[in-house]
Each structure stands twice: as C-alpha cells, then as structure tokens.
Simulated assay, not measured.
Amino acid sequence: MDDSDLKIGTATTSHGALYFLMDRDPRTFTRPIVIILHGALRNSDNLRGWYPVLSKHFDLLFVDLPGHGRTPADGEPTIRAFTDRVREMILRHFSDREIVAVGESVGGLVALGLANGRTPGLKAVIAADPPLSTAKQWPIYGNFTRRARENPIGDYLMTFMFNTFGYTPQGIDGDRVYYSMVSAVKIPACILTGDSPLFPVRSQPVIPCLMDEVDRFLIRSLKNPHVSMDIIPGKGHLCLDADHEPARRAVSTFCAEHLLTQTAGAES
C-alpha cells in the first residue's frame, strides 16, 4: 500500500470545482473521511505520504485549495472563501459522513474555520502550526519574496498572500490576526506545533515554527474547552510530517479517537 494508488478526483461547488487526490471515490463508500489540507504555495502532493499511514481505516481526500495544485484560481482568494468552499464541498457531497479535517499552516486556518459548528459531520480538526499572527513570520515572508522573484506565482496567489498575510514583494502591509478563529471553535480541535523556535532570526535548513510563546499564551488565555495543543518534538513549521513517528502517532491517535471510537459505539 503506497501513495502511487492515489488518483485525481473533483467535487463541484458554487464557486468552482475543488480537485483532490483519493484512492477511491468516498462518495460511493461509508467509511469515515479524513480531509487533508495543505499550506500556502503548496499542494496536495506535499502531504500524500499520509496515505499509507491513514488509509487502512479512513477514506482520504487530499484537497488542493483554490489556485493551488490542480484546483483553478476561482473565487475570492481569502481564508474565509477557501473555508466556505471546503464546507460547501462537505455539505454537497459528504453530509452523511463522519469527518476529521487535518490542515497544515494556512490549511490549519481553514480547518479551524470549519470547526465553528456549521459543518455537519465534522467531528474534529487538527491545525498544524497555523500562522495566527502574520507580521512576525519572517521565514514565510522570505520564502514568499524568493518565490515571487524566482518563479512568479500569478495575480491570484499574489492577492491571496496579501489578503492572508499582508505580504507584498515590497514589504509587509500590516498584521493579519486569526486568534478569533480559535475562540469560535465548537468541536474538538488540536493545534500542533513543533519545538524549533521562531526567534531569533537565523539561517537553518528547516522552517522554524510559526507559533511562538505569545501565540501559545494567547491560546491558553482564550480558555476554549474544545481546543488543545500538542508539541511534535524535533520539528519546525512542517510538523505534519508523515515520516516522523511522533507526528504519525499524534495524527493517527486523534483521528481514531474522533472517528473510529464513535463508529464502534454506534454499531454496538
């Protein structure tokens, strides 16, 4: 069992199609679904390593967000619009299924947005190192300016980076703050991060965590009983790493707790 079994699928929404990778069309089966959402300027192929980890028990959808991967650059390039698009996909095609959404970075913000109680069937979400406050994200801004200089990303994604992060090639246009999304969560949500600190600014081979101690303090201060935090040791921003045993264990356990346990209880 490996990710070479994955094939391309699509689901219609009122703002255009969403494309995804799947091993079989989950609309024709009944197993719980795990929806996996990539980060900004990445795509579903970056996370397909989760297929052999999770596919024994779940149907998997590796979704390309609008303007990324195979999904066309349709609709408004904002976190809210992306969230609404994924929610509409769930309501149209998977409303009778039990689902966990797992998102890295910006995909984690989308997952948190889905967790506001307006997505029937969604039992829980994982947000892996979401950028809750963006002006301080020096490694992401550096990567954005390098990409914009070496491999132009197009007007749609350029607008998305401005709307989501406040980034332009000329500088950072204010902060974008997403703590209110944590406050609005109404189902179990686990925020994962690594232990590679954001500061000081330094050169290193991996992207450090986007969440810092201020973010962790503010999440604790919000006292949302649905929200927990977990540290993945030995990882930075890309802590949603299927090759890393602590990450595999954290995600697999979370999905099993919120999907398999409930399914077993309903059948008994």
Rank of each mutant, 00 (worst) to 15 (best):
S95F: 12
G69Y: 07
P233M: 13
G67C: 10
E213H: 07
I35R: 06
V106Q: 11
L112D: 04
N151T: 13
P130R: 07
R147T: 09
D64C: 00
L18K: 05
R87E: 01
A17P: 08
I99V: 05
V106Y: 03
L18V: 04
I172C: 00
K136S: 00
L192T: 06
T28W: 14
G194E: 09
V206T: 15
R85T: 14
L114M: 11
N116W: 04
I8K: 12
Q170S: 15
L6H: 03
A266T: 01
K7Y: 15
Y51D: 11
F160S: 12
A40Q: 01
G107R: 07
R31D: 02
P208R: 06
G75N: 06
I126S: 04
T10G: 12
P52K: 09
E257G: 12
P205H: 09
L240T: 04
M229D: 02
F62D: 05
P208Y: 07
T30V: 11
I33N: 01
S14L: 01
S221F: 01
A135T: 05
D241Q: 02
R147S: 15
L114C: 09
P246E: 08
K235H: 14
G234Y: 05
D59G: 03
I219E: 10
P225L: 01
A189F: 02
P130G: 09
P32S: 08
R220F: 09
C239M: 08
Y167G: 08
V206C: 13
R202C: 05
L210V: 09
L192I: 03
L18F: 00
M161Q: 03
G69A: 02
G103L: 01
G194H: 03
F58A: 03
R80C: 11
G69E: 06
K235N: 03
F162D: 14
F62H: 12
Y178K: 04
D96R: 10
N151F: 13
G121N: 10
R216S: 09
W50R: 10
P32Y: 03
T83S: 11
S221D: 08
T263P: 01
L109A: 06
D23T: 12
G194R: 05
H237M: 12
F29W: 11
R31F: 08
C255D: 07
V100P: 12
P26Y: 00
G67F: 10
Q137A: 15
D25L: 13
A148S: 09
I232D: 05
T28L: 15
A73D: 02
G39Y: 05
N46G: 15
P188H: 06
P169F: 08
A264N: 13
P205D: 02
E267C: 13
A247P: 08
K223T: 01
L240A: 11
E213W: 12
T71W: 03
Y51Q: 08
F165P: 00
K123L: 08
T168P: 14
Y179T: 03
S228K: 14
L157Y: 01
